[in-house]
Amino acid sequence: MTMTNDAQAVLPPVPGLEDDDPPQLTPAQKKRATSRHLAFQGGTAGKLLGYFGMLAAVLLFFVPLYFIVVTSLKTHGDIYSNPISWLPNPFAPENYSYVINEVRFDKYLRNSVIITGILTVVEVSLGVMTAYGLSFLRFPGRNLLFLLVIASLMVPNQITVISNYALVASWGWRNTFQGIIVPLAAVAFGTFLMRNHFLSLPKEIMEAAELDGTGFFRTLFRVVLPMSWPTLVAFTLITVVNEWNQYLWPFLMSDTDAVAPLPIGLTQLQDNEGLTNWGPVMAGTVLTTVPMLIVFLILQKQMIKGLTAGAVKG
């Protein structure tokens, strides 16, 4: 039984038996073939405009940063020279040794590391735990609780700072680490971020874990968190930077170098003598920024790794 049309006398040739000449490309096709690697296909003017925009954005960020670094290497007179000098003349690295030796920079650095370290560990663990509970445990009032967490995000710090101060000071916690750390350890943002991420995980994988007899915390550490790397790293990074730059609360809580972190130390530099010597201040700023740059470079790699590893369907 055949399905062919027997009335047709000559059958069409089987493809591949005859060598065909390659097709002629039209000018438009040729142009596309040569420019395929370029993502942007606008004209020359459009490209120029694009590059100009990029340049403007880079300058906007880069010029202030450049002046921080350059000023940190200038002498006092050089900083106030008119017109401004774009390179330090004379070259003055002694600003750095001044900061390190005179202002107990090491002490402030130690305080910053302690405060940021403890706060990051506490906030990330609390954030992950509360988010896990809010997304996978069923209990009455769960949604109300989550609403409260979100609501607390909407109250500015400055509103609660006075009552917080009165309370913590009355406990005698001024100039102590716990006085700085405990009131800052609230994690509404992290809870919000992680909960929403946990709820976006495929439900079937949680069900598979349940059927595989995975315990409550084992599910968290072996199933949920490995699928949450990018979000967790982003959360950690935001927390580290945020706590490192914390100024108002530590400033209120401490008036010596015993527990004050780096941002407070920088203001000590600024007010030493009536006229601020910007060289050491900028040197201190650069030194304060360096640890964050290192943390960012390390975690950024992790974040990208997490992003690609997590890119799995179901």
């Binding site: 069900e207 072996r222 490995p226």
Partner: peptide, 18 residues
């Protein structure tokens, strides 16, 4: 579910991606 000794194959497979 974990105490019923039932295994399941899901439509989306639901393998642990990590």
């Amino acid at each position: 579910a974990r105490d019923r000794d039932v295994a399941m194959v899901f439509q989306s497979y639901a393998l642990y991606p990590n």
